[in-house]
Design a protein around this nucleic acid. Structure first.
Ligand SMILES: [Zn+2]
Ligand SMILES: [Zn+2]
Ligand SMILES: [Zn+2]
Ligand SMILES: [Zn+2]
Lengths: 139, 139
DNA sequence: AGCAATGTTGAGAACCATTGTCAAACTGCG
DNA sequence: CGCAGTTTGACAATGGTTCTCAACATTGCT
């Protein structure tokens, strides 16, 4: 490799430049506290006067997700939905109607998934766990 | 609510006619013990000499899923994948590489999800829980 | 400021899994 | 056989997501 990487620590694989577009996506995410599709996020940005290409919204959301700054999951139609979340491992309780989301943690569940996987000799684990329902408001 | 169909005859909402195509899909499913996409299932049917339209494969898989005779979940790309499963509620431990699948049950997890949801006043619940990893063979 | 190197953007095309269309073929039941 | 309702399949249409690539922005350097 030829990377120079001045003063940085080791292999700075990618520098995330602060652009107007990325700030707009971050701002839009901050405006929601529930899961939204890329389209909805794109729409909100437009409605706020800013203009960001849809492809850029997708790119930004993906890289934020990889960086662990947003959570991405799929609704029942398989569409990706996104939400800025706390950075610790957690799961979600999501309202099927309005999207209202509660972050939940379950140490016992984490232990259980690991135990089950180990028991069957599976390694390099990951898991998905989401609860869907109708929130008190939507009833 | 308006649901009729008291266990027996009532409003037989749909009669599943045994056609050559539906038998072919069922046979293909029986030939796998791991999750496969509709395309893969369609391919296997073709390779076996049978010929079933892709749309029919989708239709059959969907109705089987609704009937609870197959499980459908989404891989990390959001594509639907299907597998014939036991008819009791369970989750899956899936090999990310070869697809090898283990059905797992966790009464404690079921209780936990219900408790969490109730605690926040959510009703009409459902949940997804899948564990992904690398199976012993694939290591 | 000027400049070169490299990362970023966006309009639109391309992808591709999934669903819709609808006339033709099939099934269950007399 | 003949009818009524169901199912099928070739193909079009959807729609979310990714790709393309030339124009543009940012960074680092002089
Ligand atoms: Zn709600
Ligand atoms: Zn977890
Ligand atoms: Zn494997
Ligand atoms: Zn469960």
């Amino acid at each position: 490799m030829t990377s120079t990487d001045p003063h940085g620590g080791g292999t700075q694989t990618q520098q995330r430049r602060p652009t107007r577009q990325r700030r707009a996506v971050a701002a839009a995410l901050a405006g929601f506290d529930d899961f939204r599709s890329a389209q909805e996020i794109h729409d909100l940005i437009s409605r706020q006067g800013d203009s960001v290409g849809l492809a850029t919204v997708y790119r930004t959301l993906s890289s934020l997700a990889e960086a662990g700054e947003v959570d991405m999951l799929r609704n029942e139609d398989g569409e990706a939905i996104w939400r800025s979340c706390s950075d610790t491992h957690h799961h979600h309780l999501v309202c099927r109607t309005c999207g209202a989301t509660v972050e939940v943690e379950g140490p016992a569940v984490e232990r259980w998934t690991n135990a089950i996987a180990a028991e069957h000799g599976y390694a390099d684990l990951s898991h998905t766990l989401e609860i869907f329902g109708t929130c008190p408001t939507c009833r």
